[in-house]
C-alpha cells in the first residue's frame, strides 16, 4: 500500500484514504465545440502510460477530499513528490518521463 503525502493536509496517509485520478496536466479543451474527432480522441483516451516518472492526479477522498498531483515512478511505485492542483510539475521531477 502506498503512503501518500497530501499537500493540503500536510500529512502522510495510507493509500486507502485516496482515490486515483489518472494522468495529470491534461487540459480541458477551451472550446469543445470546435474540436475535431482526432483532438477528442487525444483528450479523452490517449494516455502517456509512462514507464518511469509519471505525473498523476490523486484525490484525498477520505480526508480533505481535494485533488492534488503526484510524480510517481511506475516501476518502483516510489512517490517522488506531491504538489497542489494548478501548480506546474516541479522541474526537478520532469526528467525520466520519456513519453
Amino acid at each position: 500500500m502506498l503512503l501518500i503525502h497530501c499537500p493540503y493536509c500536510a500529512e502522510d496517509r495510507p493509500e486507502v484514504e485516496f482515490t486515483y485520478g489518472g494522468e495529470a496536466h491534461i487540459a480541458r479543451p477551451l472550446d469543445p465545440s470546435t474540436l475535431t474527432d482526432v483532438e477528442w480522441e487525444g483528450y479523452l483516451y490517449l494516455r502517456k502510460n509512462t514507464r518511469g516518472d509519471h505525473a498523476e492526479r490523486w484525490r484525498h477522498m477520505h480526508g480533505c477530499a481535494r485533488y492534488f498531483n503526484a510524480v510517481r515512478n511506475t516501476v518502483t511505485d516510489r512517490i517522488e513528490v506531491t504538489y497542489k492542483a494548478g501548480e506546474a510539475r516541479p522541474p526537478e521531477h520532469v526528467a525520466g518521463d520519456a513519453a
Binding site: G22, L46, R47, K48, N49, R51, A98, A99
Partner: peptide, 17 residues
C-alpha cells in the same frame, strides 16, 4: 508494456497499465 513499445514507433495508445 505495449505503450512503451508503441512509443518507439511514435504512436500513442489508448491504454493504461
Amino acid at each position: 508494456n505495449t505503450s512503451v513499445v508503441m512509443d518507439m514507433a511514435g504512436l500513442r495508445f489508448p491504454l493504461e497499465s
